[in-house]
């Protein structure tokens, strides 16, 4: 009698554990896919920015001939960021490569931010229709990159919290789900949002 009771109890415990493991595994997969999709969005936005920058610089040259240095900075930063992006593409998920891209991306954002500041500094330029369009494009491009990054970091935060919390961390260890790196930026200049006023 007591033996049967023990067997039943054991079966129930095993069943509960099994259901928990299945549910937990599926949750990990769902969250991982979510942040991977968010990362794909960052790449899309970065590529879009890479393609847009030469056109923007070309358009700005006509107005900002005397600010050649700022424009050269943007071109150089873009080239470096493209290189970092290609290195990451060659080794997806590499922590060092991701860090490299984040750094170069921040440098590019900084250069573009300076370009915006330069345009801001010339009231005549601000009033120009072409320049206004250019500023809007620059701002939107920068925002898209940073909002895609924000969405990725939000998704990574949720995933990492799940991977690290008890008792889910036991499952994560068993199924080999590792924490994911956030897309962090180090430069303080980059942390400040690029603000453009159209007053």
């Amino acid at each position: 009698m007591t033996l049967t009771l023990w067997i039943v109890a054991a079966v129930v415990v095993v069943l509960v554990l099994l259901l928990w493991a299945i549910g937990g595994y599926n949750a990990f997969v769902r969250l991982r896919n979510r942040f991977q999709n968010a990362f794909a969005q960052i790449e899309v936005q970065l590529r879009r920015r890479f393609e847009l920058i030469p056109n923007l610089v070309e358009a700005a040259k006509a107005y900002l001939g005397h600010e050649r240095e700022t424009l050269t900075h943007v071109i150089e930063a873009r080239a470096a960021a493209v290189g970092a992006s290609e290195r990451l593409a060659a080794r997806p998920g590499g922590a060092a490569e991701l860090q490299g891209l984040a750094t170069q991306d921040a440098a590019l954002s900084g250069a573009l931010g300076r370009l915006l500041a330069v345009i801001e500094a010339y009231p005549d330029l601000k009033a120009d229709r072409t320049i206004a369009t250019l500023t809007e494009e620059l701002t939107a491009t920068e925002n898209k990159v940073s909002f895609a990054r924000q969405a990725y970091n939000d998704a990574v935060l949720t995933y990492n919290t799940k991977v690290q919390s008890f008792p889910d961390n036991v499952l994560a260890w068993f199924f080999r789900f590792d924490t994911a790196p956030p897309f962090a930026t180090d430069s303080p200049a980059e942390r400040a949002p690029v603000r453009v006023s159209f007053g």
Partner: peptide
């Protein structure tokens, strides 16, 4: 339109 695209990205 730009703002809408930006916010859609933020919302994933």
């Amino acid at each position: 339109r730009n703002v809408v695209e930006e916010m859609a990205l933020a919302a994933g």
